[in-house]
Nucleic acid binder design. Structure first.
Lengths: 227, 227
DNA sequence: CGGTGTCTTGAACACAGTCAATCGGAGTGG
DNA sequence: CCACTCCGATTGACTGTGTTCAAGACACCG
């Protein structure tokens, strides 16, 4: 019954994604910028809050999340970076948050110094970076609205729709992150995320094949989110 | 008893403030940029979500907030702009959110088009704008952490500390915004904000002179926020 | 086929929300 | 100067959503 839609379940292929990490085509082709391909294991830290920001990263395949941890263990995920997204850029010389691979991930790593110098010299690059930062800013404001004024079910619905939009292909998609990661992104507990998904399924807003393969039904989904 | 500290209550003088709107000294002195001084009344809309973004603004005196409204009336305030802060810049040609004066406010208004063209030509200006956007981004991440993983009392305490930091002078400061504005910034209700302030006062973390004049006691405040 | 980690479900609880009454302060007019 | 009004802030009682704690189901991998 679960796969009764007649639509196959394709594995999530790596590919370009538009989103909060923001693909920056001209950015990576700036002259003199030499990147290295690096692999990160599941749950491997890429950089930690407070460390010196030496590199800039671009996801090739897999998924990364940026997060902040409180002393008592509470954690807030700021963003998920999917293939094509760039992350690791900040205003100061130190990272203000941590980044970790949520699954086996391949990324290009660029040294930050030449990068910044290129931006300082090349007005066009700086302008592109400015626009990219403004877009990320708008994503952050959407996130704030989600956390401040949306119910648990609305948050989960919006999250799933966002991941679907950023995934290639239509129909079925895969959630690379765990319920804990989703909960920490949405300011909820894993139990509440689980219950919300169950409720969305019961209301016909989605289909599940295991915990991580999802297909959304946008008509019912819109209904849940108040048209 | 309220003013038993022996410290006078000075009115909040207008002055430069560091914060999320981010003061950008070089930005406003770019050649060919002519601004106009404009006054906005209390609760007057400065621009609305979806409108064409024609201008960029800098607060001279008073206070402005940026916010998003949902169809059912729920509202989320993204940021408060205090004297010195610049606002109205976005990635696209349309405003993604609304802005409103929270009290009688004076602001400089600059046309956006020449502004953007200056940024496109002048690499240094674009670089400055990029850095400013990155700083705002970090403010947004702090806001997300606040909404996602902090209790009501912690949110209010953090908010008051933030406003104190951005106000000139030490000791007493004034909250220019109403409880509704604070609640909509913190993702709470006005009742919960009110109760949190009362509790902070009871625990010795602050002193009040009316609803809007506050003085924080950082030692007790740190204790409330879990050291 | 067992073991482990993740996810789901259930029941009791707590924190923040809702509804409603009261208080307080600023502004207005007699 | 005082009384009145209005709007915002505070407080109280109750409700509801999401959390906590605990048990069980499921999937992945040896």
């Amino acid at each position: 019954m679960i796969a009764a839609t007649g639509v196959a379940l394709p594995p999530l292929p790596p590919g370009p994604a538009e989103g909060c990490g923001e693909a920056l085509p001209p950015l990576m082709s700036a002259p003199g910028l030499i990147g290295t391909r690096v692999l990160f294991g599941r749950r491997q830290e890429i950089f930690g809050a407070g460390e010196e920001a030496r590199s800039v990263y671009r996801v090739i395949s897999g998924a990364v999340h940026g997060f902040t941890s409180l002393a008592d263990g509470r954690r807030q995920v700021n963003a998920f970076h999917l293939p094509g997204d760039v992350f690791g850029l900040g205003a100061g010389p130190l990272h203000s948050h941590s980044a970790e691979a949520v699954v086996e991930t391949a990324a290009m790593v660029y040294p930050r110094r030449p990068f910044e110098e290129a931006a300082r010299r090349d007005g066009h690059l700086a302008y592109t970076l400015w626009l990219a930062a403004l877009r990320q800013l708008e994503h952050g404001q959407d996130h704030v609205l989600l956390l401040g004024r949306r119910s648990a079910v609305e948050r989960v619905a919006a999250f799933l729709a966002q991941i679907e939009r950023r995934s290639v292909g239509s129909g079925w998609f895969v959630l690379p992150m765990t319920r804990r990661d989703i909960a920490d992104y949405l300011g909820l507990t894993i139990e509440t995320v689980s219950r919300a998904v169950t409720r969305l399924e019961a209301e016909g807003a989605l289909l599940r094949a295991g915990a991580k393969r999802i297909r959304l039904c946008h008509a019912a989904l819109r209904h849940v989110m108040g048209d």
